[in-house]
Design a protein around this nucleic acid. Sequence first.
DNA 1: TTGTTTGTTCAATATATTTTGAACAAAATA
DNA 2: TATTTTGTTCAAAATATATTGAACAAACAA
Lengths: 176, 176
Amino acid sequence: MPMAAHSPATTPNSGTSNLPLVRLELIDVGGRFAQSAGFPRSVGEIYGLLYLSAKPLSAPEIGEALSISKGSVSTGTRQLLALGFIRKVWVQSERKDHFEAVLELGDMLSSAYDRIFKVRAQNAERRLDAVQDSLELSRKEMTPEEHALIQERLERLAKIQKRAKQFLPLIERLIR
Amino acid sequence: MPMAAHSPATTPNSGTSNLPLVRLELIDVGGRFAQSAGFPRSVGEIYGLLYLSAKPLSAPEIGEALSISKGSVSTGTRQLLALGFIRKVWVQSERKDHFEAVLELGDMLSSAYDRIFKVRAQNAERRLDAVQDSLELSRKEMTPEEHALIQERLERLAKIQKRAKQFLPLIERLIR
DNA sequence: TTGTTTGTTCAATATATTTTGAACAAAATA
DNA sequence: TATTTTGTTCAAAATATATTGAACAAACAA
């Protein structure tokens, strides 16, 4: 369903931006994708805008097209730059920074995968180790039966984690 | 770092629950995992509580152990039941429903994968089709050059999606 | 140097999500 | 039947997250 950025589905885009429908829709797609990946909607909208832009856009242009503030543009572009989804480009006789989308989305997604999911997997592993350590610390508060039960169940978790660790590199290879 | 459910890291667990440290920690792990997967924290905490429980727990027991309300327990257990992460069990001479964790987490995660990620992939595919349709609708508002550029970029997206579609079943097989 | 433009930060505001708990419904008991 | 127990719903409150915009800083121009 066609939808202008930030506007309810039924209302047409409010005035200034004047982008063709297809671009407004991809802005919305980007926003939704960002949300489902745990990023602010505006970050995805910025990428969606730049992805279908014929030329690099300045921060004020982005803000005007999406009706978002200077601050949000600054924060959003910083995040996208850090993830490698956009780059700064120099535009002749312009002092403002300009941004363009990195089009190699496949590569970008795999690098985002690296940064996000690998770190998460590592954290999860460390965390589970800590839980297993604290099982021994809690030993005195428990009956031997309870201790054995918890130990067995934590070992199940460790096995799942091991399995996950093994197939993650395979996914990486497939994504690249 | 050890942490009682819902309490700041430095404060000990407030009174009634009296669970050993290791169980409090797994509750926290469950809560964080749920959050990273887009579920309410309390849903993960309920699973974490049940996962290390020697016996099935009633709704009031869950609420008391986690210091959450009747309503949250009801909502949380319903979600976990729908996902297949817990099951109801009948406990002799008890009228209350009792809940226990499904321990086959690997299986559960793959079925949750099915339900969530497959639907997302399908939605994304439909959505991109719609965007491509609207490119044709917007044709008159654009120069031929702009049209060609957008068409090319949308085709790139379609390719990425196709690739993603291909490797998703492989991941599934690995997870199972 | 001063004045202007551009970009960032962050406290305040707005928005979205989760949790609560009172009101209700459903089921079991007496 | 009436009474108690158990479970659900959903509007309101609490919490978490995103956005704004004024104040600040940094870069450049004159």
